[in-house]
Design a protein around this nucleic acid. Structure first.
Length: 187
DNA sequence: AAAGAGATGGTCT
DNA sequence: GACCATCTCTTTT
């Protein structure tokens, strides 16, 4: 049971993405704790045409260029908050998008936040995950390892899969053939 | 079961 | 003013 801190996240996004599989995302928001095992991620690097960081630092993506282990949150399609973990060294805009988790604590809170949907559709997409954990633009830039962190990532001893399922990233129009989506294989 | 379309707002040209 | 790292609901096979 160890809290992952800044240095742990530092590295190339595709590598860190694989390491993040089976780690546990935790949020403490509004007096509710929610925890979920990360089962699907996507990597975005700085020389990657599909990445928000591809054309340099802007107001939106500036935290991607900051230290590893902070959250990069952006608003997608005007209504969904997508959650990323920054991985590059300072000045290098890399991040891993968290696409899906299995809820392991706070399922009642998640059901409430997700408006009473079927349990298998609560956190199986990046926008759904953001809503389930209570995250929004106000959480952009938060340090996952800060003492006061409301969001963190924990290693509870479950190793990442030796052979993750690998595939193309979803919902992008550039670099669609780069296989940087990783998933925990089905049991 | 699959395909289509609308919602909705921040960010960048 | 266009473009989205999406989701949900409706319509059609």
């Amino acid at each position: 049971m160890t809290l992952l801190t800044g240095r742990w996240f530092e590295g190339d996004a595709p590598e860190v993405a694989r390491e993040l599989l089976d780690k546990v995302l935790v949020s403490h928001i509004g007096g509710h704790r929610v925890a979920g095992r990360i089962i699907e991620v996507e990597a975005y690097t700085s020389d990657d045409p599909a990445s928000h960081s591809a054309s340099g630092k802007t107001a939106r993506n500036s935290v991607m260029f900051g230290p590893a282990g902070h959250l990069y949150v952006y608003l997608s399609y005007g209504m969904h908050h997508c959650i990323n973990v920054v991985t590059g060294v300072v000045g290098d805009g890399q991040a891993v998008l968290l696409r899906a988790v299995d809820v392991i604590d706070g399922i009642e809170t998640v059901r409430n936040r997700r408006g009473g949907r079927n349990d298998n559709e609560l956190t199986n997409g990046p926008g759904k995950l953001g809503q389930a954990f209570g995250l929004d633009l106000g959480h952009n830039g938060v340090d996952l390892a800060a003492a006061s962190a409301t969001v963190s990532i924990i290693d509870d001893g479950v190793a990442p899969p030796d052979r993750p399922t690998v595939g193309p990233r979803i919902g992008i129009t550039k670099a669609v053939d780069t296989p940087w989506r990783f998933r925990v294989p089905p049991p």
